[in-house]
Design a protein around this nucleic acid. Structure first.
Lengths: 160, 160
DNA sequence: GCTTGATATGTTATAGTATTACATTTAGCA
DNA sequence: TGCTAAATGTAATACTATAACATATCAAGC
């Protein structure tokens, strides 16, 4: 069972409700959740882990939804622009958003052993980064906040 | 004149003193600041901007210090391991450390217009990320904290 | 001084990540 | 219907990074 904040949960429900929310959000904002885009989101949602663009592409290819890299990158562009997914810069990988809907400044806890990712909610203007920005007269448009380390499970059992 | 925390400063002195500190640190810790490594640091120090590995390699090549990618990546590995440089994950680029010497958890303000980078000092266990980690039982080994936006100069004059 | 082992460098090839460019198709709308 | 914008198909290429292995350098101990 995948982790959510490193906690077990009803993952089938987790996928179902997020897709439903994405459908509703797109209807409301006149965005098109096309078959490729919807399937890409579903694939990312399948695990609370970050997937590489080419990993995503491989699954899309199995489904006959495209084989060339732009297929995956376009879907990821859409999903990240809409706030349905995030890029984990430290891994060059992508993950479904765990706090659906609104614009937000996510922060990630990334387990370097099992590759699980937990998403925490933050705001760009809080904390030390916000302080530093205000002091420097710097205007933040996007933040990348990632912590690499070991999740509770992997601290106890340090196997791969 | 390059920016330092987006402030003008004596940059020649900034380079000189940092190289001297690096020499001293290496002597003290039995690390070898070989010609390639020293020149790589000098190149990164030349600007308070992030350079791609291949940008660095191009300059090293001009100096006859190597032409193949591993030359640049090895130098960068050494410099980042020693704490003399950091990787900016959001840009896949590298920058000389502005707070020399100690282990630290840097945070960066990155101007998307002029590509200047300012480095702020933080600690991994403070702030909201540290809170989230403690709450989840997660052990942090490394943090990536980057803010993309506009520096004071580029807010006023939004040219490239 | 010589040997040895560890570290550093030289070099080729390749893996992994991402974009450009342009042709074609589809969907919404005047 | 015909127009326009958005989405998709596809080939080629650019950018980022590492693997693998040969060679060279250097310091420690004999």
């Amino acid at each position: 069972m995948p982790a959510f904040g490193f906690q077990p949960h009803d993952h089938a429900d987790c996928i179902r409700t997020t897709l439903a929310q994405a459908d509703a959000y797109c209807a409301q904002h006149k965005l098109k959740l096309t078959p490729i885009r919807r399937r890409a989101l579903e694939i990312l949602l399948a695990e609370h882990r970050a997937l590489g663009a080419y990993d995503l592409l491989a699954v899309l290819a199995e489904d006959g939804l495209g084989t060339a890299p732009p297929v995956a990158y376009r879907a990821l562009d859409f999903l990240t622009s809409a706030g349905f997914a995030h890029k984990i810069e430290g891994l060059n990988a992508y993950i479904a958003c765990a706090h659906f809907g609104a614009d937000h400044s996510p922060a990630f806890l990334i387990c370097t052993s099992c590759k699980s990712v937990a998403e925490a909610e933050t705001t760009a203007t809080q904390g030390r980064l916000g302080e530093a920005a205000r002091a420097a007269g710097f205007t933040i448009s996007r933040t990348v906040v990632e912590a690499l380390g070991l999740c509770p499970q992997c601290q106890e059992a340090p196997c791969a």
